[in-house]
Design a binder for these strands. Sequence first.
DNA 1: GATGATATATAGCCTATGCTATATTTAAAT
DNA 2: ATTTAAATATAGCATAGGCTATATATCATC
Lengths: 136, 136
Amino acid sequence: MTEVDQADRFARAREAQSVALIEDYVEMIGDLIAELGEARVADIAERMGVAQPTATKAVARLKREGFATSRPYRGVFLTEEGAALAERVRARHRTVVALLVAVGVPEEVAELDAEGIEHHVSEQSLKAFEQFLQGK
Amino acid sequence: MTEVDQADRFARAREAQSVALIEDYVEMIGDLIAELGEARVADIAERMGVAQPTATKAVARLKREGFATSRPYRGVFLTEEGAALAERVRARHRTVVALLVAVGVPEEVAELDAEGIEHHVSEQSLKAFEQFLQGK
DNA sequence: GATGATATATAGCCTATGCTATATTTAAAT
DNA sequence: ATTTAAATATAGCATAGGCTATATATCATC
């Protein structure tokens, strides 16, 4: 059977959390490139609300995991994989906000909560959300 | 105005995350006490899917923050504050699962996703969920 | 009441994310 | 071309959560 105990559920949530920061940074870098042509570490730090060395460290992780590229003292760019991830994250974010609004959550609150919720929404839930939104 | 920029949103999500583990442990300890009369560290560790020293460390944090009490080599208990938190968390969990199911997410998936989602659902969203569920 | 099994605690390590302070590089301005 | 300002990198520290290995305490049993 589909034996999924509580320990597995928590393990899943922990895993989702470890991916969450990557997703946030990748999406944000995508935004900055779209808006400004490039993503500077200083801008990333400001938008993420962290100190600049924290952003630098995050970028190092993104590079290590193949989502971004950069050269010292230069802007940050997304790999193909990074860009694809950014697009997926962006779409999921929109869907989550739309669903929250659809069930009566005020727009502003929906944006706030979605930032945390989205990372825990599985593909299956996302599909359900989309169908629900269509059938309205 | 209600000036809430993206950095604030991420800060909020980070804060929610730091509270999440506390909530999970407190809820689980509440469950164990309800089921078995007391919460042993070994049982907590098993259900959380972590090693026993990890659970011990978590309990130390709960004690430090006033949610639990325990004496060496004895079971763990909740303070009044801890019990109240456990009840709130449990209720929120039920509501989140119910909402997911209501918008078409399969029961099993809803349980899985709720474990991560619930910690990011604000009071306002929760209220909206409840109203939505009633109005069905 | 001594002994062996079980449960809990402690020590020590790792990784991730945050920070401040400071060095280094790039870019701008005189 | 120097000098200065701004951006980025690096060093070093803290906390949180995870782990394994091991010490210590409790409990059950003989």
